[in-house]
Design a protein around this nucleic acid. Structure first.
Lengths: 223, 223, 223, 223
DNA sequence: CATGAATGAGCGTTCATTCAT
DNA sequence: CATGAATGAACGCTCATTCAT
């Protein structure tokens, strides 16, 4: 690999980043198929050919856009989980980190849901395999955590993968609802608390347990 | 309005149904944008113009495909819920009915997730408004049920809509996972049981409750 | 040719006439290419196939529509000219009759101008040759009249065909202007008088001639 | 606005001009609806997409073709009229200039007659409004000239607009006849003289007036 | 490297016409 | 005869991609 002058190199990276940002916003707004390379070129203020010389093709650009963000998501969630001391804490961290990240990246949320959550399973998969694998590997980490939790008798003895899918689906559903009702929802924190509570203890009030004397989300953390 | 002869009318309905089925399978396999009307025409063994004379446009055909199935889904779920005696039973029925329906209609599941669960919120919404409204109205019914459950002290006093989104997202996530791993999963019944359990009582083992006398009750959280 | 029952025959003729009228109005409004056979069928309240069984093709229907009216026009103009005693009178009658007919058939005027006045000279001529020939034969009659007028020293010794084209173009231009300004123009009679005057004596005031002491169109008939 | 290199700019203009010329000839030959963009592309030896990238749509290309020529016509006629000293001279110049221009642009004549002279008055007007307005503004100039002529007692006290329509229709009719009989007609000059004479003084020989002492009153036509 | 004019395969859609009933 | 569902060639147009400059 030969070196560029530092200035050139810096400019080059800026251009790449700029194009990726522009592409993300347009892809998120319009979806893959309804976005044209020209739209991206115009909004990024580069020539069409320039986009191609950097990213090769529309699919590759799309893959780069989604892949980059998925990397960030995975990195963020993984880092957050690492901080948690207990199994349950790790799951809680997963929920909070994922929701927080998606909420901070509403643009990306659209792409995430369309391409990561609802993959084109068949031929013509738009996303490169590696992106999906990266995300799945994150879920595998969570699966291990849950599995250990089950072993310890903390979680119910279900298929750990089912539980993970549940957590994943739960968080998607809630943050998606935030996207739908653009109106200022309850705070993100409230949503995260609710999802956590529902996942851990379910929707049903435990009849004779004295856990929830009045409201519903404070007292019953495992202390 | 002119009457067709009964035979012609019957044939007509058969043709419509046949085209809708073919369209559903191709749309589900390839998505809206990667499906061409020609593909549908060829597979349905009709001329291109015939498809258009019946459905007007690609968008309308797509709307009809999704709309028809959503109607079935809504009808099935609503009917099942009606049978349940209690609030909790209705929620359980919702979960079971929805999962059962989607599992029986894996083709449709793809469309459902792409277009109902992850709507194009912006302009250019492919699906007619009415389809989404129909689905939302079904969720509203569930919201009422949950709300009554909350009033009775059965469910925790959260925002009923959040709970409903949770149920909806939970079931989507699980049935989607069945789609992903085409391999024979656990039985559908097992999945339904797990989802119901998770939603109602959460993933955490209730420490002192005597529900799980044997295995996993050990109180050993890593403190 | 075998006979139909008289009632059937009458009904048949009515149907033909009805379809022709409907077709004329739509062709006139939208032109040949922007009119579809289905539009005609719907407005005429017949099935598509029925139109075809009567007229064979779109072109033939169009030809029939224009041809029928051209026949009427030619018949009317010829009849009117026959009544006139003198050469000049015949020309005047031509002008008046043609303008009156076109003014009574504004629908047809559009077709006339598009297809008779501005023929598609090349390949793909929409109108059957016979229709154009019929119209041209009418102009030939006028040409003969003018030629006789020239022989008698009544008209200036120009090419008679040029004069005829002038008369034809003049009348077209004026009646077209009536179509353009849908507003109630001057009376048709006034327009006819003006055109006649302009054609016969030109636009210039004859300075010293005492021919037209007051108005301008009487004295100089060839007696 | 970015500058192109002079060479690129020159080439670009050449391409535009070339395509316009090709389009004009095909539109003139076949009319708007029977001309396909592919025909134009093939004859122009450009790819289909190239035509679109320059002109946007078939309608816009057509508008550009007709509009460009109408501009030339209006410019030419206006310039010629400006040179004439008298009112009558201006009208004569109009006649001559318009006929000369149309005769030099027989291709265009077809389009002119189809789209300028016989407008689609209704919806779906193919031509942009501006083109028609440009032509009409030219006629307005002539109307003013005629009106001044009437005030001076030079022209008969008719509606000036009627006179203008007459001149316009007259010239159209004559030059059209030149198109029809592709055979070498009389010279264009002869036609122009005849039209001018007819318009100014009419077809009738003024018996005692001494206006035309020399040439064309003699009863000696083709004997 | 950056540029953007040029490319052309391929799409959604229309509509004159046919023909089994 | 009347009908209208079915046909399919052909159209206008798009847009990912290339390549000479």
């Amino acid at each position: 690999m030969f070196k560029r002058s530092p200035r050139r190199e810096r400019e080059h990276q800026q251009h790449i980043k700029h194009i990726l940002d522009v592409a993300e916003s347009i892809f998120a707004e319009q979806g893959f198929f309804q976005t044209t390379m020209r739209q991206i070129a115009v909004k990024a203020e580069f020539a069409l050919g320039t986009i191609y010389s950097h990213f090769g093709s529309k699919k590759q650009l799309y893959g780069k856009v989604v892949g980059t963000k998925v990397d960030e998501l995975v990195a963020f969630v993984t880092r957050e989980m690492a901080d948690a001391p207990s199994v349950q804490g790790q799951v809680e961290k997963f929920i909070q980190a994922k929701m927080a990240f998606l909420d901070r990246n509403l643009h990306f949320l659209r792409l995430y849901l369309a391409e990561v959550d609802v993959p084109r399973l068949d031929i013509n998969n738009i996303l490169p395999k590696k992106v999906r694998e990266k995300y799945d590997s994150m879920l595998c980490v969570l699966t291990d955590v849950v599995w250990r939790g089950i072993q310890k008798g903390l979680f119910k003895p279900m298929d750990a993968r089912v539980i993970v899918k549940t957590v994943d689906g739960l968080t998607n559903a809630l943050v998606l609802s935030r996207l739908k009702s653009a109106e200022a929802h309850l705070s993100l924190e409230a949503d995260m608390r609710d999802v956590t509570e529902l996942f851990l203890h379910g929707a049903v009030v435990h009849q004779k347990a004295t856990q929830n004397p009045d409201t519903r989300k404070e007292p019953n953390n495992e202390s």
